[in-house]
């Protein structure tokens, strides 16, 4: 009763905020400007957003309490945890099913909405943005409390619960869903700001206010995608980390749109260009994020993410329609306000590079969207489903990725307005030489133009980004007479967006190097008895024995496999094939040996239950995978620096005492 009651109360506050916030604003007849005429009403609506957060957090606390006290009278608790579950999987069980996922969704949305509503500097943009956020809360709270009640009770209380889905027994699953949700849901805040700017005709500076609000979900979504990849790699056992699954694609598309916006927003801030485009991108990011949720929840397309399907899918479709109509309708309505104030001066300029990168990003979104929706389109038109697989996506996305890396390198070295081709060429010579120095021997050794090409593009971008950071640190060190490290730190403190961005580029380049390794993946499957040896990818594998024992919730079959290279034992791998009694299904635990050169990835796919104890092993040789995770970590660090270093600067200490006395004097005079 308490949990659902709190959701209902939160819903009431959200309805109030959605109406009260815009009612605090009025359009002046003479100037046409929107001004806040009832600040008390706006303050009350802002407080209502905090109240919604309190209610939803309270409801989540009720459910978590039920999980930790093993209160199996709640159907959701009985289905998703058991007495033997460790604390961290008890905690993450909250989002193991549909109803809890929606509750987490409401919680994260409420955190965003309350954080947005309590900021004072966005006051004139707030009323309508709060209305959009509160309207979104009304939708989610209605389906959470009304359709998918996580607080439903059982008539007969079981002695123990079913336990968490064995596939979700992974540390990544504790972080991946909340991170992904933080990314997807967060896209609604920039959308709310865009709606507010369009309604109240404050289209001049909304982009500057929006950047931080899109940087947070962009970073979270990117991190969530990588964590999802890591989960797929370590848990699913097919040897890869990205399969162009519809749900992966659905999370990738808003991320691509948001990445495009992070670049095009700079063009609007600097030059007053791409203003219509920016509104369109922010709307697209939000609509694609909702679309992603809709795909996951509707079960329209088959996916590995089938943990939670329910009829709420069709309501998401309605919400998606409203969001699209509001976004596009407002954009068309305010089109005259969004005319650019400047034109492109030269094709050799930062804005031209950013414009081109935006087009490539959008081509990427459209191609992924097309590939994802093809089964639905062909089903509707021809009556039978036609799907495209990873080869299609790899073929179309690889050239786009190469184009983006060249554009990112160009965009790093070229200036605003009118760049000098000669200067650009001079600054690209060394990175291009470095790229060639690495790619040429790779081509000679591996005889793959595609692989060597990817390495060339990636090293070009990595070298350009690293050279730019090093060059700026050197200049700063010379001017300030600081040591190199202090100058380096100063760079990130003074211009976190730019240098954080370069670090993200560097990380992406390293990720691409890791992905390029997939050109040389190899796989084999063997059926061997204990004591046997098999060879694969230059390694010898000795299957020593099979250990079998019972754990509280599963029967464990653990194979001990020694790994030899050039006659020397280098590792012992222990893949498992476990039978989860509550779920009545087997689940592989994969053994991976990671090195900078390649991963050896061993899956115990089947065992002979008899005396022979022979095992079927699927072994993958995955080159360079480690660099995907290293690159992603560098990119996330860059994103965090761009976000946090900027904050510190904004709220940093007062000007240093070394400031000229005349400036202090001027400040004093201005105050008095």
């Amino acid at each position: 009763m308490l949990g659902r009651g709190l959701l209902g109360l939160g819903l009431a506050f959200a309805v109030y905020a959605a109406v009260a916030a815009p009612a605090s604003m009025r359009r002046e007849q003479d100037t046409g400007e929107f001004t806040i005429v009832r600040p008390d009403l706006l303050d009350s609506a802002r407080r209502a957003m905090v109240a919604v957060l309190g209610c939803v957090a309270g409801a989540a606390a009720v459910l978590w309490y039920a999980f930790f006290t093993r209160d199996f009278s709640y159907s959701y608790v009985a289905l998703n945890t058991s007495r033997s579950a460790p604390p961290w999987y008890t905690f993450s069980a909250l989002w193991a099913g549909m109803a809890g996922s929606l509750l987490l969704w409401c919680l994260i949305l409420s955190v965003y909405a309350a954080a947005f509503a309590t900021r004072r500097r966005l006051r004139r943009l707030q009323p309508w943005a709060i209305s959009v956020l509160a309207g979104t809360q009304v939708f989610f709270l209605t389906i959470t409390a009304g359709l998918e009640n996580p607080f439903a009770r059982l008539d007969v209380v079981p002695a123990d619960g079913r336990g968490l889905n064995p596939l979700l027994h992974s540390p990544g699953m504790v972080i991946h869903p909340p991170m992904l949700y933080t990314g997807l849901i967060g896209m609604i805040v920039p959308f709310a700001l865009a709606v507010s700017a369009l309604v109240t005709r404050q289209t001049k500076n909304w982009v500057r206010e929006t950047r931080v609000w899109i940087l947070v979900p962009w970073l979270a979504l990117g991190t969530g995608l990588v964590l999802g990849g890591a989960w797929a790699y370590t848990e699913l056992g097919w040897g890869g980390y990205w399969g162009w699954d519809p749900v992966e694609n659905a999370a990738l598309m808003p991320w691509l749109a948001a990445t495009a916006f992070l670049h095009s927003a700079m063009v609007e801030e600097r030059r007053g260009m791409l203003r219509i485009w920016n509104v369109f991108l922010v709307t697209s990011a939000a609509v694609l994020a909702t679309f992603g949720t809709f795909l996951t929840r509707s079960g329209l397309l088959s996916s590995v993410h089938t943990f939670a399907q329910s009829p709420v899918g069709k309501w998401f479709f309605v919400f998606l329609g409203i969001q699209t109509i509001v976004g596009i309708g407002l954009l068309l309505w305010r089109l005259p306000d969004l005319r650019s104030t400047a034109a492109l001066d030269s094709a050799v300029s930062k804005e031209a590079a950013f414009l081109a990168n935006n087009l490539v990003f959008c081509a990427g979104v459209l191609l992924v969207l097309w590939g994802t929706l093809l089964p639905l389109i062909t089903q509707a038109v021809f009556g039978s489903q036609l799907a495209v697989g990873p080869p299609f996506f790899n073929r179309v996305m690889t050239p786009l990725g190469a184009a983006l890396m060249v554009l990112a390198s160009l965009g790093t070295v070229v200036g605003w307005r009118r760049g000098s081709p000669r200067r650009v060429a001079r600054r690209l010579v060394v990175p291009a030489a470095a790229a060639t120095a690495v790619a040429a021997p790779v081509l000679a050794a591996k005889h793959s133009v595609a692989f060597a090409g990817m390495i060339w593009f990636a090293v070009l971008l990595a070298a350009t980004s690293a050279a730019e950071i090093a060059r700026a640190a050197r200049v700063r060190s010379r001017l300030t007479r600081l040591g190199t490290f202090a100058a380096f730190r100063g760079l990130f403190a003074r211009n976190p967006r730019r240098y954080g961005g370069y670090l993200v580029h560097l990380g992406v380049a390293v990720v691409v190097i890791g992905m390029a390794g997939s050109f040389f993946r190899a796989q084999t499957e063997v059926d061997v008895a204990p004591g046997s040896t098999f060879r694969f990818a230059g390694y010898s594998f000795v299957y020593r024995r099979l250990d079998q024992f019972a754990a509280p919730d599963k029967d464990v079959n653990l194979a001990v496999v020694d790994l030899y290279r050039r006659g020397r034992r280098i590792d012992t791998l222990r893949p498992q094939l476990n039978f989860h009694r509550n779920w009545d299904q087997p689940q592989s635990e994969i053994a991976i040996r990671t090195t900078p050169v390649a991963d050896i990835y061993v899956v115990l796919a089947a065992i002979d239950p008899g005396q022979a104890q022979s095992g079927v092993f699927r072994v993958h040789y995955n080159p360079l995978v480690l660099w995907v995770w290293v690159g992603a970590a560098i990119a996330v660090l860059g994103g965090l620096l761009a976000l946090l270093a900027g904050r510190r600067r904004k709220h940093g200490p007062a000007p240093a005492p070394a400031e000229p006395a005349i400036v202090r004097e001027l400040d004093r005079v201005r105050v008095t």
């Binding site: 009763m1 709190l6 109360l9 001004t35 008390d40 303050d43 407080r47 109240a51």
Partner: peptide
Amino acid sequence: MDVAIFLLVCVVLAIFVARPLYGDRARPDD
């Protein structure tokens, strides 16, 4: 018990939200 907690939360949050409208003066528009 649940009902008592729920009613208490209702009252506290309602007062919190309504305060700017009654008494607690809102800050001027910035």
